[in-house]
Computed example of a mutant assay.
Amino acid sequence: MKIGILGLGLIGGSLGYDLRSQGHHVLGVSRRQSTCQKAIALGSVDEASVDMSLLATADVVFICTPIGLIVPQFQQLISHLSAATIITDVASVKTPIVKALAPLWRNFIGGHPMAGTADSGIEAAQRDLFLGRPYVLTPDTTTPTSVISVVEEIVRSLGANIYHCQPEQHDRAVSWISHLPVMVSAALIAACMGETDPDVLQLAQNLASSGFRDTSRVGGGNPELGLMMAQYNRQALLGSLQEYRHNLDELINLIEQENWTVLEAKLQSTQQARPNFVE
């Protein structure tokens, strides 16, 4: 099968590695010629170009650009494709993407691989990035079953675990476990940088270890991605942030009141709940 990848960053490049290993012929398109050359040299794609017409012969196209570029680049892309071409995306927000693209292309299905690292660019791409990770598909009532089957087959070949849901359900769920942690983690780093004593700040930086590394990782990631999460999943993220603030206020009150019994119960509850989210 010929598979096109529009956007050769971390996700697009990683897809290319795995799809080529499955025997597919991978066509890549990037905004920069240097990225195209690097993707070929690294073995992520078979062919690459800055010209979208390269994807004209693709059976399936994965749109892997930043969220803000998906709709405008999709509109350019479809002028090069036959009506039979299947298109999917990898955006971490689904509702606005599906609403914009599904009416324009019958063979479109929204998708989101829940995989990634704090790094970005083709250099960050890696093999088996999706192995054992969730991969969400958001078909609607008009999505042809043949389209769902083809994309499911490709996703399974990546070793990912497939989940189906409505775009709105997806966006609410990821606001809790993906987008909220980015904002909380960013706030943690910003709060630490608010220390006014330079000696104490330096000491904190010297002493920071695994606990700080784990809780600050996503807040120190790609700023563009965090901004897009906030812009395109604004309502769901605001709801999650407000609930988080409510819980933070509750902890502050318990500590101010020295209510150690209730605080301990709260921490026991969160200890018991965590395995439901993280194996």
Rank of each mutant, 00 (worst) to 15 (best):
L101H: 02
L101C: 04
A102K: 10
L104H: 06
W105D: 01
N107I: 07
F108T: 06
I109T: 07
G110K: 00
G110F: 01
H112V: 06
H112Q: 05
H112A: 08
P113Q: 09
M114Y: 07
M114P: 00
T117P: 00
S120C: 07
G121I: 09
G121M: 05
I122C: 07
A124P: 00
Q126D: 06
Q126S: 13
D128W: 08
D128I: 09
D128L: 10
L129I: 05
L129H: 01
F130T: 01
F130E: 02
F130H: 00
R133Q: 14
P134T: 11
Y135P: 01
Y135C: 04
Y135R: 01
Y135Q: 02
V136N: 02
V136K: 01
V136W: 04
L137M: 13
L137P: 00
D140N: 13
T142V: 14
T142I: 13
T143L: 02
T145V: 15
S149M: 08
V150H: 09
V150W: 00
V150L: 10
E152Y: 04
E152V: 11
E152F: 04
E153A: 15
R156T: 15
I162V: 14
Y163H: 14
Y163S: 14
C165Y: 08
C165R: 08
Q166V: 15
E168K: 10
Q169I: 15
Q169C: 12
D171I: 06
A173L: 11
W176Y: 13
I177Q: 03
H179E: 06
L180W: 05
V182Y: 12
V182N: 06
V182R: 05
M183L: 13
V184N: 01
S185D: 05
S185F: 04
A187N: 10
A187Q: 09
A187F: 03
A187E: 11
L188D: 08
A190E: 14
A190N: 12
A191V: 08
T196R: 11
P198I: 13
P198W: 09
D199R: 12
Q202L: 12
Q202A: 15
Q202Y: 06
Q202E: 14
A204M: 11
Q205K: 14
Q205A: 15
Q205W: 12
N206R: 13
N206C: 11
A208Y: 01
S210W: 08
S210P: 00
S210T: 15
G211L: 02
G211Y: 03
G211T: 11
G211H: 03
F212Y: 13
D214E: 08
D214N: 06
R217K: 05
R217Y: 02
R217M: 02
